[in-house]
Design a protein around this nucleic acid. Structure first.
Lengths: 113, 113
DNA sequence: AAATATACATAAAATTCTTAGGCATGGTGT
DNA sequence: ACACCATGCCTAAGAATTTTATGTATATTT
């Protein structure tokens, strides 16, 4: 997941955000979508993704729909109503995080306009 | 450290950034400064901070200067030349992270203006 | 025929942080 | 005098998340 440790903790937010946009997605699709959107900057590893999906499902934030495409299985995930709420919450947390970090990083301190 | 998991991985960046601004700081001062700047949003716990400082020192990114103020010890940390380079690098990573996350979060996909 | 892509999965280890203490000085309130 | 909180350092057990390393199987490309 990139060489930056900053991505630690943002996997769930990313997953939820993608599912908000795409209605239903399967695991492998998520990894590819993220790679594409970020132009390779961010690579979600399967060892992190699948456990995360299982946990989100266990928490009632995602529903699963297993489909057989050709001869292969796909597990399509989609947001539950509760998952939609959580998505909204996570996105607000992200905005707050970014805002806070920018305050910490930008030297407008001791000025406090 | 806030209720958001997004802060995971950003502690070192925060420490380095503060030391870039403040020349020399001691641990407790860092916790208070962060609390103040973020108006309580972000509380750095000492259980995370001190091991992080020790590690940065061991990596040669920080130098320590122990001083006795009144009857109490203070360990003042400051950036080494290598620490300054690393700070620059970490700040660029933060910019990249924010940019990437905003791309992931903002729905300009499949448009790619 | 071999290599790569698709598609799922788990498990050990590493990393980072939280939680929960411990020790000591100094000031403030009762 | 005594309790409590702020200052100032510290560590260690556990939790949570991710990396790394596999495993299995089918489909496509070279």
């Amino acid at each position: 997941m990139a060489n930056s440790k900053l991505y630690k903790g943002s996997l769930v937010t990313i997953i939820l955000r993608l599912l908000k946009e795409n209605e239903k997605m399967y695991g492998y699709e998520i990894t590819q979508k993220v790679k594409q959107i970020t132009q390779g900057e961010l690579q979600i590893t399967e060892g992190a993704l699948y456990p995360a999906l299982h946990k989100l499902e266990a928490q009632g934030l995602l529903d699963v729909d297993v489909q057989k495409v050709g001869n292969r299985l796909r597990k399509y995930y989609k947001l539950t109503p509760q998952g939609q709420k959580e998505t909204h919450s996570k996105l607000q947390e992200l905005q707050a995080y970014i805002k806070t970090m920018q305050v910490l990083v930008n030297p407008k301190w001791s000025l406090e306009s």
